[in-house]
Design a protein around this nucleic acid. Structure first.
Lengths: 237, 237
DNA sequence: GAGGTTAAAGTCATCATGACCAGAAGTTCC
DNA sequence: GGAACTTCTGGTCATGATGACTTTAACCTC
């Protein structure tokens, strides 16, 4: 039994976030334009190569910061791909999916404006309106969305999209966007209140309606379910 | 941005099955004894190296056959590990988990006896009574068991342990073993009948009791949930 | 044929869910 | 300042799923 003699391991990440557009809140994610073959000029998930001295999840966070400047609030491994026909050369790629809080998107945009570094090669796309993608990244994003929709039913992932304090209506809007259907406000309130994952604050958000109480995530509960190794993976902050 | 310059990619598999022992039915899995460093003489998950010309899932099935002679009825990717301290040399390992039908275990044992090839380095262990394992394989098996217990609630994975035809009591016994608690026979029947995943046959299993109807899995439903790529992964037969 | 054993069908209370209603408490418009 | 409007928030009610339990069926062993 001999060794596999050197395979290149790529790491890439589908960073999902919610953006407020004129069409309402939509799921969207940043893509980077490839500068070299294969698939030059096509859009792809941000990523890079795993180096010899880092863990895969660290490589995902590092390449994410390098290519987009973003630091997600949640990072979880999605799948390891390695079909031989996936690319001309043999590559194994470990794909992660991440959640980004909507306020971090705005902060990043402001940072772009401040530094004048307008990233020509990074652009946000709506998840339901993607361009032609490199490799099989379209399928990968499809799978990431499936995982997200799945998890929103039994975990608190939706809270990973929201800032520290939020109203129940905002949380419900996030869940509605993920699931693609409207939810009854009263029933949603009943469910999330009995789940014990939220802490009520004494602050309220005013607006063209009765003031809505602000909530924050309860600190003890995990954002999603467990991973294989408590040390290596899962929520990074 | 330069390439990662050659990482060895290992593939290993946790093959779960149900064995009938004097303590009743228990979850168990085969382990192989390592013959070289690191962790020489320790027990480990069967596996091998990914070659340049095969898909990871194919490598999992191949190395499984080579080291244990087993061909599982279900094979799904579990996780890709790659912590730098996982082994002296840098290795990324893609771990799969598999289900083996109990009748296949017996067939394999008979084959061993027939060929006289008693595999000194392969042995079955009960999942709740494992020896000291190489690498972090104990944690990996723990995670595989967690995934199994999780999936048994919303999918038909338990049927992957049973032969083609089985009684509801046998299916219930499999689920009970996975979950580690007893289930009400009548309620279990009601649930599984309304789920539509079984087809009733006209045959019965007799015994020291009223005859029990035999069922088979309905062919249209998948054994578990979807994977990322319909072509590459999931159930292999 | 009696007794034992499990299969299979049914009953009942409880809990979660979805649909819906009504009052509360702000803003906006006149 | 008050009416109109909007959404928040607490509540009811019917329905379906679930768990605990009972009853009858049909085989085997003695």
């Amino acid at each position: 039994m001999t060794r596999s003699s050197g395979i290149d391991v790529a790491v890439s990440t589908a960073i999902l976030t919610l953006r407020r557009t004129e069409r309402g809140v939509v799921l969207s994610l940043p893509l980077v334009r490839r500068t070299r073959e294969p698939f030059a000029d096509r859009w792809a998930l941000p990523g890079g190569w795993l180096t010899a001295t880092e863990a895969p999840v660290g490589a995902a966070a590092r390449t994410l910061a390098e290519t987009t400047g973003l630091a997600p609030s949640y990072l979880e491994q999605l799948y390891a791909f390695g079909a031989v026909d996936r690319s001309p050369s043999r590559v194994v790629s470990i794909v992660y999916w991440a959640l980004l809080r909507s306020d971090q998107v705005d902060a990043q945009s402001a940072e772009y404006r401040r530094t004048g570094l307008s990233p020509e090669n990074v652009r946000w796309f709506d998840a339901d309106d993607l361009p032609a993608l490199a490799f099989d990244h379209a399928q990968i994003i499809e799978y990431a969305l499936w995982r997200l929709r799945n998890k929103v039913g039994y975990s608190r992932v939706a809270q990973g999209f929201l800032p520290e304090e939020f109203t129940l209506a905002e949380l419900r809007e996030a869940v509605e966007t993920i699931l693609g259907r409207r939810l009854d406000p009263a029933n949603f309130r009943r469910q999330v209140e009995s789940s014990g994952t939220l802490i009520a604050t004494d602050e309220f958000r005013t607006g063209n309606h009765r003031p809505a109480r602000l909530y924050r995530s309860s600190p003890d509960a995990e954002l999603a379910d467990r991973g294989p190794l408590s040390s290596e993976e899962m929520s990074i902050r």
